[in-house]
Every structure is written in C-alpha cells, then in structure tokens.
C-alpha cells in the first residue's frame, strides 16, 4: 500500500459516503443519475466476486463490503424511498444502461487476463467503471443547477481516478512484476472522461462562482 493508493481509496470512499449522506440527510437525490448509480452497483457486484474466496487483507475485505453496501443503499434510496424517489430527475436521466453494458461485456469476453468467469467479470467491471459516469455527466449538462454536494461528488470521483494513476506509476517502478494493461488503459479512459468536468469545476472554484456547465 502506497500513499497514492490510500489517497485514491479514501477519495473514492468519501465520494460514495458524501452522496449517501446527502441523500439520507436531505432526503433528495436531485441532480444524481440513477443510471450511473445502478451501473456502479453492477461494477462492484461483478468485481468483488472474489470477496469470500480470495483473501487479500482485512482492509480490502472491509472496503469491498463498504462499497457494495453503500452503492446498493444509494440505488435502494433512489428507487424505493418514498421521499427520495420523488426528487429524482427521471425525465432528464435518459441514458440507456444497455448501450454501455453490452459493449463492455463483449469487450470483456475478448479482452481478459484469463478466460474464466471471474476474470471475464473482473475485466467487465473495469470497462464498465470507465464509462459508468457518462449518464451522470449527461445529467449534469442538462440540469441547470448543480448543487455543491453533487459537484463535490464528481470531484471526489475524479480525484480517486487521478490518485490511482499515480499509484500505478509508483507500483510500476517499485514492483518488478506489476503490469496490468487492462486496468491501466480502462483507468486512463475513465480519468479522461472527467477532464472536461474538472476544467469547469476548477474555473468555478477559482472565480468563486456557482458551477455551471456549458450547453
């Protein structure tokens, strides 16, 4: 465990907890894409198939449980909680899961480290994670008002991506056998998707104005 990996995990954890806390406290999910949240729940469910079979560390197991629990809780709140679901921007959140899930599944069947169920699912989860933010970014573009918490949520997710890239660079130079092309390329694609959002986020922060994305 290096400092970049830890910082990446912590910003990832904070992003999910900020969102869950926001929904739980103000009983609103305005501006949050249910499509993205369902895709993340699917990402964690398919990636952590090894949770009870391969023990890495107590830290890993606990983090996996938190990510699974929090992502499914968010989906539950948005779909089932009678107050929260009323605030969901259903008409604006029109991205189809299918268009992201199917190509990722096909790619995972072709590009994986080993053709086993667990490895194909692991590759699928990486590809899907890379693009799962797209429905959220589309919703941010459409919604005129981006509240601070939604902005912070996407910012923390982007920070997590950036720290993971530093982690891979660090590990590449310190661990001789550490080469994971699939992880790196899908991770890089995912980070690039945030670059545009980051540009506007930093501008609004620098000029001390409310975040507003161009049409």
């Amino acid at each position: 465990m290096n400092i970049f990996r830890l910082a990446g995990d912590m910003t990832h954890l904070m992003s999910v907890l900020v969102l869950l806390l926001k929904i739980h406290t103000i009983k609103s999910c305005a501006g949050i894409s249910l499509k993205t949240q369902e895709l993340y729940a699917l990402v964690f469910a398919t990636r952590y198939l090894d949770i009870f079979t391969d023990f890495i560390s107590v830290y890993n197991t606990i983090m996996k449980l938190i990510f699974l629990g929090s992502s499914f809780s968010i989906v539950w709140y948005m779909r089932r909680h009678k107050l929260v679901r009323r605030s969901y921007d259903k008409e604006q959140d029109t991205f189809r899961h299918f268009f992201l899930v199917l190509p990722c599944l096909l790619l995972a069947l072709v590009m994986n480290e080993k053709f086993t169920f667990k490895e194909v699912m692991w590759a699928f989860s990486l590809y899907l994670e890379a693009v799962a933010i797209l429905p959220q970014l589309v919703l941010l573009q459409r919604t005129k008002n981006i509240d601070n918490l939604t902005g912070q949520y996407v910012f923390l997710l982007g920070a997590y991506r950036a720290f993971y890239i530093f982690n891979w660079i660090y590990r590449y130079f310190t661990e001789p056998h550490y080469v994971h092309w699939i992880t790196w390329i899908s991770g890089l694609v995912q980070t690039l998707l945030y670059a545009d959002f980051f540009y506007y986020y930093f501008n609004s922060w620098k000029n001390n104005v409310k975040l507003h994305l161009p049409a």
């Binding site: 990996r5 391969d54 890993n60 990510f67 993971y164």
Partner: peptide, 10 residues
C-alpha cells in the same frame, strides 16, 4: 501461486 491472478486493488 502460479495461474492465479491477484487483484489486490479495489
């Protein structure tokens, strides 16, 4: 062990 790919990241 050989043949098992270890995914130690989240």
């Amino acid at each position: 062990s050989p043949g098992i790919i270890e995914h130690d990241e989240l």
